[in-house]
Design a binder for these strands. Sequence first.
DNA 1: CATAGGATTTGCT
DNA 2: GCAAATCCTATGC
Length: 206
Amino acid sequence: VYARSSVALARALLGTLLVRDAREGRTSGIIVETEAYGGPEDAASHARAGRTARTAPMFGPAGHAYVYLVYGLHHCLNAVAERDGIAGAVLIRGAAPVEGLDLMRHRRGRPHDADARLAAGPARLCQAFGIDRDLDGADLTAGRALWLEAGDAGALDPGRVVTGPRVGVGYAGGDWAGRPWRFGLRDHPSLSRPFPDLLPHTPPGT
DNA sequence: CATAGGATTTGCT
DNA sequence: GCAAATCCTATGC
């Protein structure tokens, strides 16, 4: 299921249930926003520098977690795609909380946040689900600490799926920053941020 | 070995 | 709207 292109996997993960089992309890949520990242050819991907100690999981077998620390204080969760030896991963950017909302709120330490915002954003999601680098490389198909369930993904309305440019990758050259590799459910309250309005395509520089 | 910068979030102006 | 928080990685000398 995971051993396909990161773009295909990013689209497919929408509507699936992300489940975290920890000592403090169980938390889960429906994934509503993802982003695809490629291999060394993708100037916006961590794999752009080739295989390193940090990015090794991206080059490993599909269905494992790639968790990294960003800006020195936030964690982000990816599901590894592509076959073993080929780099590719899907950043999980937002989920609609289903189970363990109290635990999520406690982990977040922000009692007044709306339910839908508890895991809206890649770093908020990791904080709400209690995900850190201890889970880097974890097997998401083993069903132990962290896994994905098909759930009622079939109930997802394909007409609600929208795409757009990936977030925060403006440093990437060429057309990499502009590729519509971000996927989400239109107008969902648990998006990290709105998708840009779909406008008629205009050539660059106009 | 030194240093620049980041797949973010939050709080203040 | 802007900048701080904060640390690890990647790169260059």
